[in-house]
Design a protein around this nucleic acid. Structure first.
Lengths: 197, 197
DNA sequence: CCGGTATTTCCACGAGCGAAGAAATGATAT
DNA sequence: ATATCATTTCTTCGCTCGTGGAAATACCGG
């Protein structure tokens, strides 16, 4: 990768993708602030200036690179299509499927760390969550106040991820997956299908 | 305050308290990283070196200064003493009492921002929450798995504060207090007194 | 084969940060 | 009165950061 000397590299070097991948990984690992342009460039084996050449600014790089660790549309279709019987449990199971996979957990904690640490990053994440998560979920909730229901679910998920994986709060961090699924399922049921008044 | 010239000030200047107050305010407002020793010193009307003179390091300053926005012992006594009837609702009402007051909200968001942005700060906060929040709460839960129940409540509270006040997620940020109390009360009831299996 | 353009590096700036050395000054105890 | 101590500031160090200017090199259309 590091062949020294300046100037353009031989064709198809895929540098832009390498930068994007490194950025995704570092934003996910340490959040927005602590992932520096310099460290991202270093991981991509590239001069820091090149990152700005392709993406303009750190903020734009972040916005170009954040993504959810799953596809909301198909996920929600699958979860909701099976009916309201056992819905909360399926949501909880799916949640821990994400949180117990290394990449899923990193993406989740990275989004949380980024949202908490920088106003600009928080705005980007707010749009991402609102448009690509809450909107599709709300559209599949066949009840009153679908947006409120969707965001209540999101709030419990964020809190769990934060307490369990960012802060490392016991006993949440050490409880078994089954225990947590059992505890959370009725809550998701309530938020999605229960009476809110 | 700024009378220039170096050397000791007239007796009982209360400088240490002024620094602590400024630090508390700034950590609460912008989190751990973005509250710099220099900005804290400036707010306290004091040379930056003095902050380190009194507190040793930024990390020690943070640990000396973080606190909860209420007293857990008396709060939990009051909440639980009224019996399990309406417990979840009382918890929710109390929560919004904190979150809707300026200082309470700042402290809450500050704790969240700090925990998310720095490993050292997260450790300090983990201890604070575990010892001064979860332990007293768990001791008053007359059920199985009291620690798990307490931390589940905490996780929903953290998620709500994060979504509502850090990210500013609609419709949580705009929903009325009464709506949210109604939606959350059954969840707190479930976590505190419901069957977890 | 040649001119333009996209890619890539080197270098530098100005700012901010946490931390520490050393000196000055007032309080305090003797 | 004087020596000691705590407090306070000035100054500096070494580091990292985001960003921009300018040059070098390779690819691509003619």
């Amino acid at each position: 990768m590091a062949s020294g000397g300046r100037g353009r590299r031989p064709a198809g070097s895929g540098t832009r993708e390498a930068i994007a991948a490194a950025a995704r990984r570092q934003f996910g690992e340490v959040g927005y602030q602590r992932a520096s342009l310099r460290s991202i460039a270093a991981e991509a084996g590239v001069d820091p200036r090149l990152v700005l050449h392709f993406f303009g600014s750190k903020q734009e790089l972040f916005a170009s690179v954040v993504e959810l660790p799953f596809d909301p549309e198909t996920t929600f279709d699958t979860l909701m299509a099976a009916g309201e019987q056992g819905l909360g449990r399926r949501v909880a199971e799916f949640l821990f499927g994400i949180l117990d996979s290394p990449e899923g957990r990193k993406t989740a904690t990275g989004l949380i760390r980024a949202a908490a640490s920088e106003e600009e990053a928080a705005a980007t994440i707010r749009e991402l969550v609102a448009q690509r998560l809450l909107l599709p979920l709300a559209s599949r909730v066949g009840r009153d106040r679908p947006e409120l229901r969707a965001s209540l679910v999101a709030s419990q998920i964020v809190g769990l991820a934060m307490a369990r994986h960012v802060v490392g709060l016991t006993p949440l961090a050490t409880a078994s997956r089954d225990e947590l699924v059992a505890a959370l399922a009725p809550v998701f049921d309530h938020y999605l299908t229960g009476p809110l008044t």
